[in-house]
Write a protein that binds this DNA or RNA. Structure first.
Lengths: 212, 212
DNA sequence: GTCTATATACGGATAGAC
DNA sequence: GTCTATCCGTATATAGAC
């Protein structure tokens, strides 16, 4: 009986070489973007040799694609679940979205700027992959938003509220280097500020919806 | 009397070679960022030769610095003036800021993502250059914001409102490739949507300030 | 699978003719 | 000032030994 190369039992702590490279790639790519990232840096960050990177992933671009798909999925996370839940109020949904996204963004603060930058560089390729459109507008969330918007009788398109919600959650992270400097906040202070927004955002949006 | 090289009368239509290169550089850099931009592309866009670019600007980085300084100044535009005006109400200031920024952003939609990306790549270098901090917090605008915030008695930091205002203005442009695809909007339709926000934003912020 | 050494491509910059 | 041709560093990718 011919012995195969020992296939590692996997995922005790997931530090196979492949996983190490991916982790390093995620870090470097997300911080500097595709063009400014060097495969050498990724290899070094992973503590392995440059040749090995190509052995596992063939090319910088292939590696990038994997990371990007992953990041996008990460960014979409529970959004789909929350947004589709028929059993919760609009207010509850917004609170849940704000809360879980802010938590996630505190963990991965440069994810959004990274994704948006790369989308700009490659719109056709990436926008589709997010697969958001398909269900957002049919979701429970959006229906509730439309109703609330209609009830307000101010004739404002629901899309505006969606943009505002997303912006209030995501924008501070996109602009954080600027804001942090402006207000002279340490990372920890900035994060506290973001924590405060978890409950505020839902309140604000609800306020907007009720406005005449 | 020794003749000097004929100094062009200048600025009839500002298409000196130098100006053409700068214009091309602004376009390419702003669309693709520093790292992904190739001097060859800039030269081609300007309809001149690569060597000429270096003749005028010495290096890619020098050229970039010039464009960036320019862009930042552009982005700061009348902000300082509006924000410092002692004679207008908070509401009027916000309306004016939203209105003039949205006009500007419709003209230069990828300016903010560009600036924010490059700041991430080079925080120390760029953030200072904006010279915002010095006066924002002492400005008439911020004082009014603080007062209004205090009057609201909800104990929310004024900074939150500032972030929200900036986010509501800027975020849609930062996320426009995504939003446009999501809502299936043509550029022209997207711009109309942004026009609507000119008056809405001030209303929304005022609403937030009045909330209990 | 992992390394060292090397081939190859690309992009920024310069030399030198006009 | 403007061009063509070329240099040279740097970054990706591969060959081949272990």
């Amino acid at each position: 009986m011919k012995a195969k190369a020992p296939k590692k039992v996997k995922k005790v702590v997931d530090s196979t070489t492949e996983e190490k490279i991916k982790e390093a790639a995620r870090k470097v790519f997300t911080q500097k973007g595709f063009a400014a990232s060097r495969t050498r840096d990724i290899a070094e960050e992973a503590g392995i040799n440059l040749a090995l990177l190509n052995y596992y992933f063939r090319s910088k671009e292939k590696l990038f694609d994997i990371i990007m798909t992953d990041n996008i999925r990460h960014f979409m996370m529970d959004a789909k679940v929350i947004v589709s839940d028929e059993g919760t109020t609009l207010r509850a949904k917004i609170e849940l979205i704000a809360s879980s996204y802010i938590d996630m963004l505190i963990q991965h603060p440069d994810l959004p700027l990274f994704i948006l930058s790369e989308i700009r560089a490659n719109p056709e390729k990436l926008v589709q992959r997010m697969g958001f459109k398909e269900f957002l507008f049919k979701s429970s969330f959006f229906r509730q938003l439309q109703e609330a918007s209609k009830a307000g009788q101010n004739n404002i398109k629901p899309l505006h509220y969606f943009i505002n919600m997303l912006g209030m959650i995501v924008f501070p992270f996109v602009a954080s280097p600027l804001l942090r400097n402006l207000a002279e906040l340490k990372v920890e202070e900035f994060n506290m500020l973001m924590q405060e927004r978890k409950t505020l955002i839902a309140k604000w949006i609800e306020g907007m919806l009720l406005m005449k």
